[in-house]
Design a protein around this nucleic acid. Structure first.
Lengths: 336, 336
DNA sequence: CTGAAAGCGCTTACAG
DNA sequence: CTGAAAGCGCTTACAG
């Protein structure tokens, strides 16, 4: 592909001059500029950013750590981040953890090896992950998290008021007479989707009902496990009357379990999800869920990181976007 | 973060020895190995792969060029590719073109700047894109494409038999009496989703009906444009009785347009999609569509590329996976 | 406006 | 089993 030396030789100048033209980092006479441009054209020269990063300490790479690119929520985040980042010449290096803590740690390390300028993470809020994020921060790598806070660091944080959203969802159920409400969430419930767990607990508390451990289903955060957990709930002699899923994919799995078991939704079981993914309004019945501004979350996260990478000195930011309950058809009064 | 020099100094050895231990590329006595490991631990050393790539010519980066990460089809591809690639230590550098040719060319260049070892692309089959891909190939960068062929190159190719799938979908409609069938596709129809266009044309040909240009709706490949195109079709005095969408997102948009206009599906209009994205079985009515093995496509593409990157010398591969028509509820007999 | 030279952090023959 | 040194492709003071 040719190096900057080839271009320099072809144009009869030094590599310093070529570099200056390429980066607009110093004056170059129009005559030599023209010769250099011709040489670049002729040799098909493409700058080697890996080499460049060796001196500049900037790779132009942003690491994105996520557990599942398949989840529409995540893919919209990634899309919005890519778009925002590319505006300032940054590319996204994506690492998928499959929700496994050990992979998170390993992939964070890999991103560092690739000299990412910064990292955006939207992982489960487990101790291992938090520790890993803190280490990144200590190593001086700018980090922005979506949905989880990392105490004692300079990490920027963008999220929705998921607690409020979760509370609205739960109250929507309790106000309609639901008492036996199952929670479909990750493992452990307290930390994976922790704010939604707290909303679940507090809303039950409001109506004087404690948490029934049998109704807290800890599993993966995907449709499969929503289907499995709900199928199990439906087999029990004493069923819940409602299900609160911490994301829509789980809720959709729950819906499918009901279809399969011939259980009427919302007549026999109310289902509420979280995220308002595109397909939430396409299910039968359409899903009641909490809407999060996905693109805005992604764009904001990327924006905060880019700002920092461009030298903005400021206090760590805690940016909360609004999430709202969207009542559709999968929820209704508790059966009497 | 410390460099290999810091580690070497700390362990009292040369950088060459550290490098040999790190890469398992030469013998190191157990005693020194232990000292080096301790030094790495102590200094929190992380190898700089950008620097490494300067000598090895391997970045460990695979570029993924796609038009829309939001499409479930694409995100599943990306997911599967990431998984397969990471097995051999490769990371995915994602570039999103938003379906724009100029961005494709620019992003391909950016990926080269970042020294990607190879590229996987699943873009529209436009002349600009083909030319760009050919240039990549000429530059000696291994390329695997999903869904489009690049003539006269060493590019590996993995796809479904989308023509057969499209033909099955179209025959499903024509055999039920449909004559006025609209095609919802990209611009230009002949090349974006070209095989599906050919299937459309040939199936109409079989029943002695020519293409009615008014029924070929060229637009973007997303839900929005499916909605818009269909809304327009529904406003016409002479409506089509069926719609064949080249992907499910478009088909879902078509479904929504019908909902909005109070048009019964499939009573008044049959809709057939393509891809069988997860939400295709969650719509009301559930979508008739052509199923593509998404994960397998992604995994195969990544596999072919990794093989090549690991030095496999072989003829360019043309791997066809099977796509099949899935008849659900959005299609039925033509209204009489 | 331009060039010579050092240095970024690695790996790799080569020599021992 | 180990080290000295060159080289990968850039950028950046420094000097002119």
């Amino acid at each position: 592909m040719g190096t900057i030396y080839d271009v320099a030789r072809l144009a009869g100048v030094s590599t310093a001059t070529v570099s200056r033209l390429l980066n607009g980092t110093g004056p170059v006479s129009e005559a030599t500029a023209a010769r250099i441009r011709a040489a670049i054209e002729q040799s098909g020269y493409v700058v080697n950013r890996a080499a460049r990063s060796l001196t500049t300490k900037n790779s132009g790479l942003i690491g994105f750590l996520t557990s599942d690119l398949t989840n529409p929520f995540t893919s919209e985040l990634a899309h919005a981040m890519t778009e925002r980042a590319s505006r300032d010449g940054f590319s996204l290096l994506t690492a998928v953890t499959f929700g496994r803590d050990d992979r998170f740690v390993q992939l964070a390390d890999e991103l560092r090896q690739h000299q990412v300028d910064g990292i955006i993470a939207t992982p489960p809020e487990t101790p291992t992950v938090i520790a890993s994020l803190q280490q990144l921060d200590r190593a001086g790598i700018p980090v922005v998290t979506i949905g989880i806070t990392v105490p004692g660091t300079g990490v920027d944080f963008v999220s929705c008021n998921t607690y409020d959203g979760g509370l609205a969802a739960m109250r929507h159920l309790t106000s309609q007479g639901h008492r036996r409400i199952a929670l479909l969430t990750g493992t452990p419930a307290e930390s994976v989707a922790g704010s939604r767990f707290r909303a679940y607990r507090d809303a039950l508390d409001e109506i004087g009902v404690g948490i029934d451990a049998d109704l807290v289903m800890e599993a993966d955060l995907d449709r499969e496990s929503g289907l499995r957990s709900t199928a199990e709930l439906l087999r029990r002699s004493e069923r819940p009357t409602a299900v609160f899923a911490v994301n829509d994919m789980i809720a959709i799995g729950a819906l499918q379990a009901c279809h399969a078991a011939g259980v009427d939704v919302p007549g026999e079981l109310s289902i509420v999800g979280f995220d308002d993914v595109p397909m939430a309004s396409l299910t039968t019945p359409m899903l009641t869920t909490v809407s999060q501004p996905r693109s805005e979350l992604g764009a904001t996260a990327a924006d905060l990181l880019v700002q920092r990478l461009q030298g903005a000195e400021r206090e760590p930011v805690d940016r909360r976007l609004l999430s709202t309950l969207v009542v559709r058809d999968s929820s209704g009064p508790a059966p009497t």
